[in-house]
Each structure stands twice: as C-alpha cells, then as structure tokens.
C-alpha cells in the first residue's frame, strides 16, 4: 500500500509546484508614441488624460531645484519607453529623471545628467530601444533607462 502511495504523492507535488509558478507575458511594449507635455498644477500635480497618468511632482521639484514648489505652472515632458520606464524632464532641468512604476508610486531609477546649465527647450522622442533627448537644435542624446548611450554624429 505504501509503495503505491509514494509515486502518486510525488506527481501531486510536481503539479502543485507548477501551478504556483508566476505567469509572464513577454515582449510587452509600454512605449508611448509621443511624449506628453503636462502643465504642473498649483498643487504640484500633473495629469495625463490620454494615458491616465497622474502624480505629485513636488519631490521632483525639490530634487532638481531644491524647492518643492519650483515646478508649479511650468511644463514637464513625460515619455514612457518600451520597457515601461517614465522619462521626465523640463526647461532648466539639468537631468532627465527615469522612474519605474510601482504599486501606487513612481520610484526614481536614475537621474541622467545632461547639462550643467540646464536644458532650454527639451523634447523627448521615442526611438526604440532608446529615448531621444533634444534640446533645441544643438543637443541630441540617446538615453537608456540608466545613462546616455551614445553621442549622435554631426
């Protein structure tokens, strides 16, 4: 009797283990076709109707300018890359901030330093697998979620 129960128990254990493993969908493209230009409200929040994104950017203002109210009324440029990371920058920003989405939060993955003087007319373009950063006609950089990956040839 014990000899018969042994293999059955093993089979059940294998099946149970397989059922508990996580299901993963691959080749997901989170990328937005075009950046969103969002105006920061008086409460230091931004809201994107098309992608249903909303958050408080006061910590970002404090991080970039040392003043949590510095971004009020200004425009932020937000673009999500194909991997799902949010790239955020704006005028006078020295960095491009990369955020990873979490449960009810965006957590900073990196702050990519671009210009010591600050950007004058930044724009983000989706250029898979990278995000292109433009600043007027003078600056163009390809960004990954962590760094500047290459300098474009002029």
């Amino acid at each position: 009797m014990r000899r018969k129960i042994g293999p059955v128990a093993v089979c059940l254990l294998v099946l149970t283990m397989a059922g508990c493993s996580s299901l993963t969908l691959e080749k997901v493209e989170f990328g937005w076709p075009v950046e969103s230009v969002l105006t920061v409200s008086d409460k230091s929040t931004i809201e994107d109707n098309r992608y249903a994104l909303g958050c408080n950017v006061a910590p970002l203002a404090y991080k970039e300018f040392g003043d949590s109210t510095a971004l009020r009324g200004s425009e932020l440029r937000v673009l999500r890359n194909n991997e799902g990371f949010y790239f955020i920058t704006g005028r006078k920003f020295k960095n491009v901030y990369v955020f990873a989405p979490g449960a009810g939060e965006l957590s900073m993955r990196s702050a990519i330093e671009i210009s010591a003087q600050g950007l004058s007319d930044p724009a983000l373009n989706q250029r898979p697998p990278y995000v292109e950063l433009l600043d007027g006609k003078n600056l163009r950089k390809m960004l990954s979620k962590d760094e500047i990956v290459q300098e474009p040839k002029k």
């Binding site: 076709p33 724009a123 433009l134 006609k137 163009r140």
Partner: peptide
Amino acid sequence: AQQSDFAVK
C-alpha cells in the same frame, strides 16, 4: 533633421 515628435504632432 532634429525635431521633437511632439512638435510634429
């Protein structure tokens, strides 16, 4: 040569 996609849209 160098233009924002957003500007194009």
